[in-house]
Design a protein around this nucleic acid. Structure first.
Length: 106
DNA sequence: GTGATGACGGAAT
DNA sequence: TATTCCGCCATCA
């Protein structure tokens, strides 16, 4: 019957993918989009994560940009929240850039 | 329909 | 390595 269930909701797919990022590793918005089957939609991934409820348990902070940097202005509260979370998982920053050792997934 | 926007990406410089 | 520029694409005013 529902042979095309896969095309359900793109946002749900994105949630699933982000939820599967292993603790202590990070990946990029573009990579999440590609895994979801929507290459070129990195911005959509960002918008999706932005709309998460504040109490969400999704590890949104494990998603950074393709340059290995947090996509928030340095010094902003959002930037600090994300960086603190990542560092508490063992992610190492060299200045404001993530050590490529933990970058990439799949 | 049109232009602006953004938790982006990649190539050029 | 760092900046700058331009392409991309859903969303919204």
């Amino acid at each position: 019957m529902y042979m095309f269930m896969a095309e359900s909701n793109l946002r749900e797919m994105i949630w699933q993918i982000v939820a599967a990022i292993p603790k202590g590793r990070v990946t990029s918005y573009g990579q999440v989009a590609r895994i979801a089957g929507y290459p070129g939609h990195a911005r959509y991934v960002g918008a999706t994560l932005k709309s998460l409820p504040k109490n969400s348990t999704l590890p949104w902070y494990r998603v950074v940009n393709a340059r290995g940097r947090i996509s928030f202005p340095q010094g902003s509260e959002s930037y600090k929240r994300q960086r603190d979370r990542l560092e508490s998982e063992g992610i190492v920053f060299l200045n404001d850039k993530i050590s490529m050792r933990k970058f990439g997934w799949k």
